[in-house]
Write a protein that binds this DNA or RNA. Structure first.
Length: 552
RNA sequence: GGCCCGUUGGUCAAGUGGUCUAAGACUCCGGCCUCUCACGCCGGCUACAGGGGUUCGAAUCCCCUACGGGUCACCA
């Protein structure tokens, strides 16, 4: 620690009073059990939450949960230019909407924890103290290169076909003296602080990535900027300081960060910190023209988590799907443990995909149908109502008018061992219940199948009307349907009909189709018996009669 | 271009030198199931990027090529 270095540090950061050592003392190591992982999700408030971000956040949370560790959320707002209004709220709400709640940092009920503040813009003094310490040790220096000089250097480097950047002989201010610096400052020149990189690109650094395995790269020799001209640190520097101070054991982040890992490792090294374990998650991709590409915020609506919310995918479904992407054995586990909370699934970081997974909406729908099919009707009702209140007001009114009725509709066939899987998202519910409400019932498609004449249709309805008894049990009801068949020339057993199709006009299935169309306007619906029960005898008779009129 | 990472069916993927004439899931196509649809069940289509090694033996290890992705900022 030379006198000049100390002078330089004082010149550049005169306002910094607290020392790095003092700060270190305020952040004691965490007392956690052996093997507990401390993870974090660290978004920047620059727009909506990306589905890939949700995925990474989920992986972080799972890893901490699994090991009885801590998962915290930290806001990385060191770039004021890109920040948007309400950016923090958007990202935190987005996370919380899918059940990603932090144990510490930005929690649903506000900031909490002993290792804060958890927002980088509030940690300015901390970073600056460490920058000052580095300068005192001669490991960092002020750099007065202007934007124009920088681009000239770049152009020159490109011409020479050497690596771009500030390193070696290109690092013009590496050995600037205090007097020179003082002079430039007096002239009003702005500056950044750069790391005096001790790296040698001929040497290689290797680290063990918890997902990708051993990764080896040339050492960093770039004098990267650690403090920007506005006095705020760069991501790289803030990362090293925060993750050390906050006791992060595992940094799980998108794999676009792999290439800057040598910088980060070097930063930990010069700061005298033990680096965390890194785990680099592959991005979620989208298929386009037969190729893969990263889901893009601009081009793909499904890239934003808001999309899933608006479509009415329950958070369980989205998380369930993301789990199947994360650990492919999850599906088997889910099959064996249908109703269990998935926090009991033994999540494994090592099982994450090495290549990027294509986001598959079709699969999401399937996963979601399964997830919804095992929910009790009450829950389906509540969640779809909550969704409808925001996105389908009319449906919400209908549901609230008679909650019992709505719940019973949603309960049809639900308590079977083999529940129906018609609903993938809440926006499907309207179509599913539509004919149960006169107000929204769409009768435009009410036509008989081609093999049934209007005349026969009328006869069938008449015959059924005569036998209709709302008190019937399901078996009695079905027998009634069969009884109608023979007198009208239809087979009461499908098998009989198939053996000798020319002898009949159709079979019991056709009979019930006519009734089904009269009652619902559709050829396909869930169990007709229960639909009639819910509709009630007045409405059943009314619909049957009015369809008959329409046919004649 | 430099540096990294990756490449098993249409998609997600299991697989870590022999049990792989390669699992499972989604999609698609058949079939079955005392009403339709859905569910379920049975069956089917479709894959180790290419080429060299190493080995008795390779999807699995090594090398090269091709392709895909990422990154090279006073953005994160």
């Amino acid at each position: 620690m030379s006198v000049d270095n100390i002078k330089m540090a004082q010149l550049i950061l005169p306002d910094v009073k607290i020392t790095a050592q003092e700060i270190l003392e305020k952040y004691p190591p965490r007392q956690l059990k052996e093997g507990a992982m401390v993870t974090r999700f660290a978004p920047s408030p620059t727009g909506f939450l990306h589905i890939g971000g949700l995925f990474t956040a989920m992986v972080n949370k799972r890893a901490a949960m699994q090991s009885d560790g801590v998962f915290y959320i930290r806001i990385e707002d060191t770039d004021k230019k890109r920040e948007i209004e309400d950016g923090v709220k958007i990202v935190i709400d987005g996370l919380n909407a899918f059940g990603i709640d932090a144990d510490e940092g930005f929690c649903p009920d506000g900031q909490k924890g002993d290792y804060g503040p958890y927002q980088q813009s509030q940690r300015r003094d901390i970073y600056r103290a460490f920058v000052k310490q580095l300068m005192e040790k001669g490991m960092a220096y002020p750099c007065f290169l202007t934007e124009q000089e920088l681009s000239e250097i770049r152009a020159e480097q490109e011409k020479l076909k050497v690596n771009t950047g500030i390193y070696g002989k290109w690092a013009k201010y590496r050995d600037i003296t205090v007097d020179e610096a003082q002079k430039l400052i007096n002239e009003g020149k702005s500056f950044v602080v750069r790391l005096r990189s001790p790296g040698d690109p001929q040497k290689r650094i290797s680290f063990k990535d918890a997902i990708k395995g051993k990764i080896e790269m040339p050492e960093n020799d770039q004098d990267v900027v650690i403090l920007k001209a506005d006095g705020i640190p760069t991501y790289h520097f803030a990362h090293a300081i925060d993750d050390h101070l906050m006791g992060t054991t595992h940094v799980i982040r998108g794999d676009e960060w792999i290439s800057s890992a040598p910088i980060h490792l070097q930063l930990f090294y010069v700061l005298g910190f033990k680096p965390p374990v890194y785990a680099h998650v592959s991005p979620i991709m989208k298929e386009e023209n037969g190729g893969k590409r990263k889901l893009s915020k601009r081009k793909d609506p499904e890239a934003a988590v808001g999309y899933y919310y608006e479509q009415g995918y329950p958070k369980e479904s989205v998380m369930e799907y993301l789990m199947t992407i994360a650990n492919s054995n999850y599906e088997d586990w889910r099959k064996a443990n249908q109703k269990e909370d998935n926090k009991n699934f033994p999540f494994n970081l090592k099982k994450l995909s090495l290549s990027g997974a294509l986001f598959d909406l079709v699969k999401l729908n399937d996963v979601s149908k399964n997830a919804i099919s095992i929910m009790p009707a009450q829950k389906v009702f509540e969640l779809s109502l909550e969704w409808a209140k925001q996105y389908d007001k009319q449906l919400a009114e209908l549901f609230e008018r008679d909650r019992q009725y709505a719940t019973e509709i949603l309960n049809i066939d639900r308590e079977n061992k083999k529940p129906r899987k018609d609903i993938a998202k809440w926006s499907d519910v309207r179509d599913y219940v539509e004919y149960m409400y006169d107000e929204i019932w769409d009768k435009s498609e009410m036509v008989l199948p081609e093999n049934i004449s209007n005349e026969d249709g009328i006869k069938i309805i008449d015959a059924y009307l005569q036998k209709y008894n709302p008190e019937h049990t399901k078996d009695e009801w079905f027998n009634t349907m069969k009884e109608i068949c023979e007198p009208l020339g239809f087979a009461s057993e499908v098998k009989v009909y198939k053996k000798n199709p020319d002898a009949y006009k159709g079979h019991v299935g056709d009979i019930s189709t006519v009734i089904r169309i009269a009652l619902t306007g559709r050829k396909n619906t869930p169990d007709l018996y229960y639909i009639m029960k819910l509709l009630g005898q007045d409405k059943v008779k009314e619909r049957l009669n009015s369809f008959k009129e329409k046919l004649s």
